[in-house]
Write a protein that binds this DNA or RNA. Structure first.
Length: 164
DNA sequence: GCCAACGTTGGC
DNA sequence: GCCAACGTTGGC
């Protein structure tokens, strides 16, 4: 899919299936950080390798969840480094074409989890006019890492804190 | 579980 | 380089 890539983005959305790794798992990790390994899509990898900088803000999205939506916030805390799960034959993310000398897959480390005042569901996001152009909401959009505009990011925070 | 919409693979 | 077949994503 051809995205208009804003490589200067300081805001991102990262999808994870909560059954595999949830926002709350991140909170419980030692030092509350985790390398975002297992990504095996070149466009998502390129975002991590080329565009994501330490300090960039992340919307932590729960996909394949009931309901799907934004579960919390975090940040890039370390730039992209080789994803060593690709080298482990026992890992489900093993890629025989990746080597220690020439790693094929890279991943940033995310940390500093911060709770939202409330969960923001996909349905609510679809209902919000301000978010109508959000890449996440595009038909057929499956990319697991997506740039987010500052306006979109702020809008999510606004929704999360607007409950009674 | 279904299935639309993708991305990848591999034969040609 | 084309494209059919296949595998994956992810909402519903």
């Amino acid at each position: 899919m051809d995205l208009e890539i804003n490589s200067d983005s300081k805001f991102w959305l990262m999808k994870s299936e909560p059954d595999v790794f949830s926002f709350f798992d991140l909170e419980r990790r030692e030092n509350q950080k985790e390398q975002w390994d297992g990504v095996r899509n070149y466009q998502a990898r390129n975002f991590m390798m080329n565009d994501m900088k330490v300090g960039d803000k992340i919307l932590f999205y729960h996909s394949n969840a009931t309901p799907p939506g934004i579960a919390g916030l975090c940040e890039v805390v370390e730039e992209a480094k080789p994803d060593n799960t690709a080298l482990d034959p026992k890992s489900e993310y093993f890629d025989p074409k990746s080597t220690k000398e020439i790693p094929r897959w890279f991943a940033v480390t995310v940390g500093k989890p911060q709770r939202l005042e409330s969960f923001v569901s996909l349905t609510e996001m679809r209902e919000e006019k301000e978010l109508k152009d959000m890449l996440l909401l595009r038909k057929g959009q499956r990319l697991s890492i997506l740039p987010v505009s500052q306006q979109e990011y702020s809008c999510i925070l606004k929704i999360a804190s607007s409950r009674k």
